[in-house]
Amino acid sequence: MRSFAYKRVSDVATAIAEVGGDPGSEFLAGGTTEVDMLRIRVARPRRVVDINDLPIAAIEDLSDGGLRLGGLARMSDVAAHPAVRERYPVVSEALEKGASAQLRNMATLGGNLMQKVRCSYFRDVDQACNKREPGSGCAAMNGFNRTHAVLGTSEHCIATHPSDVAVALTALDAIVHIQGPEGARTVAFDDFFPLPGNTPDREHPIAHGELITAIEVPANPAARTSHYLKVRDRESYEFALASAAVVLRVERGIIAEARIGLGGVATKPWRARQAEAALTGAPALRAAFEDAAAAELADAVPQGMNSFKITLAQRTLVRALETVASAHGGEGNA
């Protein structure tokens, strides 16, 4: 590991000033990505600013029935919170299917959104990677790309976004609260994650010195029966090969509203808008679920070793839809 300096801060304004005023400084929260990146020399700050003592870890009710999740709230604490479990089971399930108990005790919600991709070529500084070294190429394109993305890719990057909880939060239209040297602002969740396009090194809209202070989850009564399904190579402590976050509002057997996120198959937490459009107004039946899943994956681009994900993602989504529909007493359980 390269050498770096360390400073611990205890309030948001100081944290922003310390990092914002020094191009060589980076925030350190849970460290589960950052310390790893420091060790493999992908992250090379002059100094880390430890923000673990900042008072932005609370989970609070919003007046409309939504929740405000502090940027430094730990994954384990968010997952265990009674209001999260009751109102947004999709969030608790996604969190508890991510990482391990130890890592969930460390990792923060803000850090989860800022985590780096798990592409092995990004993490190997001897390999070409447009995300790490713009213009150097993408070694994954013709490499071992079984776990890589089939949606939202470009010729410059096919790395899969690794987060589970972000897949749930995109389905819920969460709002990211950011504070920085220029003041406070909010970003809609789906806008937080750009597609790689020609600039895969641009992974988020956060400017240097800006900090995620909270994530707001709007009220959504239908989310009380929401569900996160994750399919992976082993049953626990593994990234998704395909996952689906599903929120359905079903009225007399007809889908009035569908909100769907897909994980493990895309370069960002994937909002499945084509599937949502196909489902809206359709009967809550398996045939409709299959059509919607097919519509969403119609534009998928396989890379050779990961073509199985196109089928797997559809089956994952169909099963998650069936689970949620059956909770509504629909025919999804037929």
């Binding site: 589960t32 130890q102 890592l103 460390m106």
Partner: peptide, 18 residues
């Protein structure tokens, strides 16, 4: 795995200064 303030964490990804 160790506990920091009673919570189990992995000490390899935890900085001693923190």
């Amino acid at each position: 795995t160790v506990w920091v303030d009673g919570r189990r964490v992995v000490s390899c990804l935890t900085l001693a200064v923190a």
